[in-house]
Design a protein around this nucleic acid. Structure first.
Lengths: 249, 249
DNA sequence: GCAGTTAACTGATCTATATCATGGAAGCTT
DNA sequence: AAGCTTCCATGATATAGATCAGTTAACTGC
């Protein structure tokens, strides 16, 4: 029997004051989204935001809630998913610092189509959707940037459909691990640690598979020296091998 | 053996002059997207568009082409899909009058992620992406409307992922038929004809299934009196039964 | 109206992955 | 450090749907 290893993922990513008022401006200013705005504009935009902290496991909102807010991840990791009544969830993404989520536009009284839950302790910045609408009206360049953000996600979503319908589970998992590595990876000596507490179940929800199948594939990856993994952590050892495996041919 | 019926779908939907210059303004003005703009603004926007006609089967663009144009369907039906090298395509949507496709924003030198092909003879309006970007800059309300259009598609794409991963093929087909009925349906005495030449292969590409499986399910639907169908056409007889079948429970 | 082509139907078989079931390891809790 | 809970591994079995294959029906063009 393979022996699993202790988790190298640090679950406490923020301290209590990460969301303090005086830090908001700095966080917003760092976002590529707001790059190029004057300090004055940035300050006025900052006025409209406030910040909220969540502990690991807490929900930010549920699918069906009235969608009147837009959020930005300031610190921590958040999973965004749709839940099937049967318990078959589908994860759309794991959000990290700088990612937007919630309601981007002022669609009259709509509801969130998905649910968001903190994976680690997190801090999010929050703004009323109509306030954000006014900002977009005042700064058309931001509106165009917003279109680009949403369009990128649309393209990614379409590619996910493509992968689910034409790739094997093994390839989908390989792909997903590469994406997670790229987005959440931190270099640790000779491996790339995915810096979020990801379970087999999470991977199953990301790849449209079952936890058992994911477990089998991950075991195989591990015995081939491609990854290292344990309870709630994964780390990529051989990136090239993963890339080969994910090839569509 | 069940005998199939002659197609009631009219494949010739446009005449040669449907795209004539003097019709463009009328078509643009009808679009909900441009609703609320002054006649003057509309005329200046119209200046930037030109129109192109395609015969059934012709391609508007291929995945990978340089994405420098935005299109609007003026008349006809267009399928938009991704093709897998193996021949396993994934259809994203069937576009009808008023739908946008192509490149909405001025992303520096990107490529189309999908391929578009006319299902009937069609006419499309066309604008350079950077020209459209200027329009969005001039009319921030249009930019916000654009965000809404893309966001709706994103939500639809995510729901497609959800359906593929958690519903049976039968349910997915039922769902897809309902969507097609809603979008392309025309009432014919006691049935709703889907007004586009849709093959079993097309349905397979829409539902992430094979043509054979689709054929079997459609045969069953037909013998249950839920639909009527033949070579390149489908018509819904019993909407309620389809809705029941598509229920997720 | 006949020949050729493409789309659709259906039977037989196969397989990737889900399901069901059990045991073991990691990490909390007190 | 003992007990509890959650997560992970893995074997055995079942099955939805893919694949392979052969036939029939609708449309197209001459």
């Amino acid at each position: 029997m393979k022996t699993r290893r202790k988790s190298p993922v640090n679950l406490i990513t923020t301290d209590q004051n990460a969301c303090s008022i005086n830090l908001r401006l700095r966080i917003l200013g760092r976002l590529p989204f707001f790059a190029g705005l004057s300090q004055k504009a940035l300050e006025s935009i900052n006025q409209r935001f406030n910040s909220i902290g969540y502990n690991a496991g807490e929900f930010i909102y549920f699918a069906g809630d009235v969608a009147d807010k837009l959020f930005v991840v300031a610190e921590g990791k958040i999973k965004i998913f749709q839940h099937g009544s049967n318990g078959r969830n589908v994860m759309l993404d794991i959000l990290a610092e700088g990612d937007f989520f919630g309601n981007l536009t002022v669609l009259g009284a709509s509801n969130y189509p998905d649910t968001t839950q903190a994976l680690t302790s997190t801090c999010v910045l929050c703004i009323q959707s109509d306030g954000f609408g006014q900002i977009l009206n005042d700064y058309p360049r931001l509106a165009i940037k917003t279109i680009q953000v949403v369009e990128k996600r649309l393209i990614a979503a379409n590619q996910r459909v493509f992968k689910i319908s034409s790739l094997t589970v093994e390839k989908r998992i390989a792909f997903t691990l590469l994406e997670l590595g790229q987005k959440l990876g931190v270099q640790k000596d000779n491996s790339l640690l995915i810096d979020a507490p990801i379970s087999r179940d999470d991977l199953a929800e990301m790849t449209a598979a079952t936890a058992e199948t994911v477990s089998r594939v991950m075991s195989q990856f591990q015995s081939n020296g491609i990854i290292e993994s344990g309870r709630l952590w994964v780390s990529i050892i051989n990136m090239e091998a993963l890339r080969d495996l994910s090839k569509m041919e």
